[in-house]
Amino acid sequence: MSDTGEEWQVARRRKGAARRSKSLQVSSTSTCCQEQMDIGIIVKRIRDTLSELRCEEFWQEWKGQLLVAGSASSSSKLPEKRDPEEQLEEGREGRLRPQLECVCYGLGSFSSCVSARYQLAMLLLLLDAGQIPLKDCSVYDPVFSSGERDVLRELGLTVLTENEEGKHLAMKPTLFYLMHCGKALYNNLLWKNWSAQRLSLVIIIGNSFSGMRERMIEREFTRDYSYISKAVDLCEERRLPCPSRLIDVFNDTSIITFPSNGLNRSQQSTWAELSEPQYQHCPDLEIILRETQN
């Protein structure tokens, strides 16, 4: 491992401590230091971490699961007008262009947090495996410093300028990479895409929905995170492996998909609730809301 043992210890959480959104864990001191970071050094650290992960046995299973999910989701794309010449060219070459886009929220301060750096490196591996162009991956976290945004652009990613609060509408098959994000972010994403047609386009790599339900009081879970509560019975979760030495980085991670056959068989009442989540009963929301002007 390229990082020092001391640096690694900084990133580790105490065993049994409640997980909080990484977006709430960055000190003003570290943010200040990031403004003066050497972009080249940070990019090299990320690429070194990427190379390390590529040699890990568990990465092959992550890759395989993504390819299976991406193939299924691509067959559920929305109807669109296609250029006849483009279709003819693809037919001649016997291929289809990569269909997936990617949206990543809540990475955290990857210049100072080792866990966040590993998660960013894993994102880059997944993009490569899924043949998703770097520019087609949009990333956002309110805690990114200007230096970190420059690093992400240097890597080729698209940095969003607006806090969407997770409310991103999937217009085509989309991978949402949400590592250890707050439940409200997942809930907002589901609300925005709450229809059988839209959810079939959604692939999530993040925390297990069933795990969220197990860790909460059922009544509060249904009241505060109603879309996740309903999605548990609509989605298919596949737990992704995690080596013990990276347990604080990739623990409780699943790939979550919404098979069309299950969505289409669901009762019509499933889609009746369309109200935007408000979270008035959630003092510990684990999400940074966008700033509003009075």
Score class of each variant (00 low, 15 high):
residue 103 V to R: 04
residue 89 E to H: 06
residue 104 C to L: 06
residue 110 F to Q: 11
residue 128 D to L: 09
residue 80 E to A: 09
residue 81 K to I: 05
residue 148 E to I: 04
residue 149 R to I: 06
residue 111 S to W: 05
residue 110 F to C: 08
residue 91 G to T: 09
residue 147 G to T: 09
residue 91 G to Q: 13
residue 104 C to K: 02
residue 120 L to W: 12
residue 115 S to W: 01
residue 103 V to E: 05
residue 143 V to T: 15
residue 117 R to V: 05
residue 104 C to R: 01
residue 82 R to P: 04
residue 72 A to L: 15
residue 72 A to H: 12
residue 158 T to G: 01
residue 80 E to D: 04
residue 94 G to C: 09
residue 147 G to E: 08
residue 87 Q to G: 01
residue 111 S to P: 00
residue 75 S to W: 01
residue 87 Q to S: 04
residue 92 R to F: 13
residue 91 G to R: 14
residue 137 C to M: 09
residue 80 E to G: 00
residue 155 L to Y: 02
residue 72 A to N: 13
residue 84 P to W: 00
residue 110 F to N: 11
residue 76 S to D: 13
residue 141 D to Q: 05
residue 106 G to C: 14
residue 135 K to R: 15
residue 76 S to V: 00
residue 108 G to E: 10
residue 80 E to N: 00
residue 105 Y to V: 11
residue 81 K to G: 01
residue 81 K to C: 02
residue 152 L to Y: 02
residue 73 S to K: 14
residue 123 L to Y: 05
residue 122 M to G: 07
residue 101 E to M: 07
residue 138 S to V: 07
residue 102 C to N: 06
residue 100 L to S: 07
residue 79 P to D: 05
residue 88 L to W: 06
residue 92 R to K: 14
residue 127 L to Y: 02
residue 120 L to S: 12
residue 124 L to S: 13
residue 74 S to I: 03
residue 74 S to H: 04
residue 89 E to W: 12
residue 125 L to N: 10
residue 131 Q to M: 06
residue 144 F to K: 12
residue 136 D to T: 03
residue 69 A to H: 11
residue 139 V to Q: 00
residue 146 S to N: 09
residue 84 P to Y: 04
residue 131 Q to D: 12
residue 120 L to I: 03
residue 85 E to M: 08
residue 121 A to N: 13
residue 99 Q to S: 15
residue 126 L to G: 08
residue 104 C to F: 11
residue 153 R to V: 06
residue 75 S to C: 09
residue 144 F to W: 08
residue 124 L to D: 03
residue 134 L to H: 12
residue 159 V to D: 08
residue 119 Q to P: 15
residue 150 D to T: 10
residue 76 S to K: 10
residue 101 E to S: 15
residue 81 K to S: 04
residue 90 E to H: 10
residue 74 S to E: 14
residue 152 L to G: 06
residue 150 D to A: 15
residue 106 G to I: 15
residue 114 V to D: 05
residue 148 E to R: 04
residue 126 L to S: 08
residue 140 Y to T: 12
residue 86 E to D: 14
residue 98 P to D: 14
residue 146 S to M: 02
residue 142 P to G: 07
residue 108 G to V: 11
residue 77 K to E: 10
residue 119 Q to A: 08
residue 122 M to W: 02
residue 97 R to F: 11
residue 98 P to L: 12
residue 130 G to P: 01
residue 150 D to K: 14
residue 88 L to N: 00
residue 130 G to D: 02
residue 76 S to T: 07
residue 112 S to P: 00
residue 152 L to S: 06
residue 86 E to F: 03
residue 69 A to I: 07
residue 93 E to N: 14
residue 78 L to Q: 04
residue 127 L to D: 07
residue 92 R to M: 07
residue 123 L to V: 01
residue 122 M to S: 09
residue 157 L to T: 12
residue 100 L to R: 09
residue 145 S to E: 05
